[in-house]
Design a protein around this nucleic acid. Structure first.
Lengths: 343, 343
DNA sequence: TATTAGCACTCTATTTAATTGAGTGCTAAT
DNA sequence: ATTAGCACTCAATTAAATAGAGTGCTAATA
């Protein structure tokens, strides 16, 4: 049962109105404000149909209708469709103002985007070249303590303090040092974790009791090397929306922003083009009352990060899609031009 | 006019009560809840005196009294006094759980502190060893464009794209390269900025038009090298306070947290011991309705960063001072033990 | 003389009731 | 197939009434 033209018109009217006002909207208002050319009674009937079909919902009897997630989805799809055809207007070039290194550039774009959209933005900045472990060094500190030093390709040094429940002899440390360098340095992540989980324990023989701590730490360092940084800006904009006058909801939102690992997953790139997740479409419970518009930014056509706009489900998709698209294009251009002929 | 014992008792009663309830408190309530041994009428008189002296204030006639900033200050001072004498109880050792590098460790402590205090915490993480510029490299990109590459002692590479309004000949780039390396690499910050501001322009001769852009960029890179990172956690806790049910105030607060450069200044260490700034005592307008308890953490007795708790002026100073003290001591111990015999 | 009891008064917050108004579904007329 | 009309619903607003905690002042008391 596809929507006929009249239903579409009415659905659009409800959605655009609700996006602006955040108030349920009734048949009479539509008849007055939008010149559909139908009486309120007819519109009333159509709206009842749209509700049956799941595009609208009613907060309570005798209130107006509001769009459902399905309604928004329909709306967004038709926008995106349109969007693919005519190129969005490119903004004035803001590039001149930006002088900084990678992270800083992305943060600034996220900040600008937050300002112009008046929404909360989040950005994910992965490592440019995921680091490999170049060398491992063990430094005995006490008989049951050692520092594990991890040096990476790009010269980052991480160190970890390990405590063991029993003493370890000095020459064991020596042995360990050689073993780890042999098996880990320069190897791929897959090889390393395979070695750790399969071979290490038996190779350690009588000092197997240090294996757990060791494995845990090395795996952690691997994970940290691939870890991405999350940056949020314009967080207070959410409070501009009347639906967030409800403090419990606001609290929820700020909890979400504090939860970096969740955001990290939310920003995982899933589509190359602009990706819109509306309310219940979100994988995570915490996002079920929010929508996110996200898209990737690139260096020379390869994806290096994600940037997103978060807000209530009634966000102004049309405007925001346009703005995020514009900004990420700019960002990608700038990054590409800088990191083009990398030294 | 020092406070006599009776006034002190009443002042304490008002403050502790207000910290718990956030409600103005009247003479009768005090007479009932706290066994001062005086009638409400007497307490009433004393409270009128305390108000005259500036320790209490009245939201409106016929409401109870609430503490003024001066009142809190008196209270905090007497706590800190007491505090200096008896060492605070040291918590169980949480060190075991923490394996990470510098930034990560501080962030985790800030997070734990936010959790146990149920307040927003902020942490400032300066560079361990403020970096020096080791080498500068100029890469011509086009006749009016170049990339300025700054390599630091610790191997950090920053690059900046410079645009000039006129073309520059290729051998100028060469000349510039040598000049900058000669005058900047390895030099102190003071020497560099002196050279830039005094000598550079005339040495450039006919290409002086590139000086502005160049000076701006190099100074920026110097500034960035010393720049500190700000981390905030538990931001949503502020919403637990009934005084922040007022959305305008909440918005204010989150704006503050978005403003990293302001936070950076707020967290500038000013005292070695625990430093409490109450409401109007804060330098910045934006903090006038908030209090901050901040203290430094150290590596081997030298200050490396600041950590702070932010909340409404009626925060539970006694508890929070204790908890922040505990945590930063732990943090300092841990950091010292790790970065002790630095390699 | 310091304290307390008592009283009239003030002002906010809460409760309760009344009213408004936008919206709906259904039916009958066009 | 549309539309006008009508009775009904329900949240939100407004208005009035009430309660309650507090104050300052005065006179009585120890």
């Amino acid at each position: 049962m596809p929507l006929d033209d009249r239903k579409k018109k009415i659905l659009y009217a409800v959605i655009t109105d609700y996006i602006m006002t955040a108030e349920p909207i009734g048949s009479r208002t539509i008849a007055r404000k939008y010149n559909i050319g139908l009486s309120s009674a007819t519109i009333r009937n159509e709206m009842a149909d749209l509700e049956d079909m799941g595009y609208l919902e009613q907060p309570h009897t005798s209130a107006g209708r509001i769009p459902s997630d399905k309604g928004y989805r329909f709306y967004v799809d038709s926008i995106l469709q349109n969007y693919l055809n005519n190129d969005p207007p490119i903004s004035h070039n803001i590039r001149e103002e930006i002088i900084a290194e990678f992270d800083e550039i992305v943060k600034r774009y996220a900040r600008i985007l937050a300002t112009i959209t008046r929404h909360t933005t989040v950005a994910k900045m992965p490592k440019l070249n995921p680091d490999k472990i170049k060398r491992i060094q063990i430094i005995p500190v006490a008989s049951n303590k050692m520092i594990l030093l991890v040096v990476t390709d790009t010269g980052i040094v991480k160190n970890y303090l390990l405590n063991f429940c029993q003493s370890v002899e000095r020459d064991i440390f020596e042995f360990l040092n050689n073993l780890l360098n042999d098996k880990i340095a320069g190897k791929s992540e897959k090889d390393i974790s395979e070695f750790l989980e399969r071979d290490l324990r038996q190779m350690l023989g009588e000092v197997a009791f240090i294996a757990d701590e060791l494995i845990k730490t090395i795996l952690l360092s691997l994970k940290q090397l691939q870890e991405t940084d999350i940056y949020a800006d314009g967080t207070s904009h959410i409070l501009d929306f009347p639906e967030y006058k409800d403090l419990a909801k606001a609290k929820h939102f700020f909890n979400l922003l504090d939860n970096k690992s969740l955001l990290n997953e939310v920003l995982e790139p899933e589509r190359d083009f602009i990706d819109v997740r509306i309310g219940s479409e979100n994988k995570f419970e915490e996002m079920r009352e929010l929508s996110i518009i996200k898209t990737t930014y690139k260096i020379n056509n390869s994806v290096v990060g994600t940037i997103g706009i978060i807000g209530p489900t009634r966000m102004d998709y049309r405007r925001l899609i346009n703005e995020i698209n514009m900004m990420t294009k700019e960002l990608s251009n700038l990054l590409s031009s800088i990191y083009n002929d990398e030294i």
